[in-house]
Design a protein around this nucleic acid. Structure first.
Lengths: 148, 148
DNA sequence: ATTACTTAGTTCGATATCGTATTAATTACT
DNA sequence: AGTAATTAATACGATATCGAACTAAGTAAT
């Protein structure tokens, strides 16, 4: 691996550590037994709209279908989502957010407000937000090149 | 949450997605049944030196002690590490990398060379490496403010 | 020295993630 | 229409992660 390769490797290493540290901070605040993966799914449905199929969600999160089946089962058990038969494809289903699901998402967001505020106060001068456009570009690239 | 807060939140969201996508790419290449967490531990020992206690490693990775016990047991079973009694503290142990462990790390690195090369070729013009200093700063901040 | 407290690691049970195989429905091909 | 191939979701078993409780060893206070 050459010099550029090492830098790329280091980049992903830093990303991984930040993700681990931030995940630990947020996981400790989430309501009840809400797991980060549950919140991530709720957040996806709130931000990008519900009425998706389980397979589409598995693909969006780059996780196996079986993992999504499990995550959806948990959230359905909590009544945060509803699963209905797909209107035109008998094999498939549609995922709907419920009111309880939206409230759970709101509660989760609220639970993270304190650490977000603290981090914003300490690093919010642009240290973080300046990076977002670049990260979006990298994320889009990886998203479009999954077969690498 | 104000505008700055939303940006910070979005930042961690992008970090999480990139981590997920990159993790999927690398996990698919790792040797045998080597899990990302196993590789991460080997990489830590190679880069920052071995002869650490299990607790120190758990703290470094921000995972519960029980998780580290399990990860170390797996790597010991593969003879990638050795665990010896701590010389001055009867409760503790010391983790040593073995030659097999170094080789396993080398193999893992080699297995990731192809995707790294591809990513470097596509994004290696500074898009990635320019971000590293900022990410290091953020990582160091989170590392020093775990109790947030 | 004795007792109380703390610390390092493990055991155990529960949940999350994942790979393989299976079932049911759809699509493609003839 | 009938068969083969594909696709969506699930069942099942294995590993990873985690929290609570436990054991053994060290530390502190008197």
């Amino acid at each position: 691996m050459d010099e550029n390769g090492r830098r790329v490797f280091q980049f992903f290493n830093e990303i991984g550590i930040i993700n681990q540290l931030a995940g630990a901070i947020f996981a400790a605040r989430l309501p009840d037994g809400l797991h980060v993966s549950h919140f991530a799914l709720l957040n996806h449905l709130v931000r990008l709209g519900d009425e998706k199929t389980p397979l589409a969600l598995a693909s969006a999160f780059q996780v196996p279908k079986t993992t999504m089946t499990h995550t959806l089962a948990v959230l359905e058990k909590r009544a945060a989502i509803r699963l209905t038969p797909h209107p035109s494809d008998g094999r498939s289903k549609i995922v709907f957010l419920t009111e309880a699901g939206r409230k759970l998402h709101d509660d989760a967001i609220a639970s993270m407000a304190d650490p977000i505020r603290q981090i914003t106060a300490d690093l919010g001068d642009g240290t973080i937000s300046d990076l977002i456009p670049q990260l979006e570009k990298i994320r889009a690239y990886l998203d479009q090149n999954r077969s690498i």
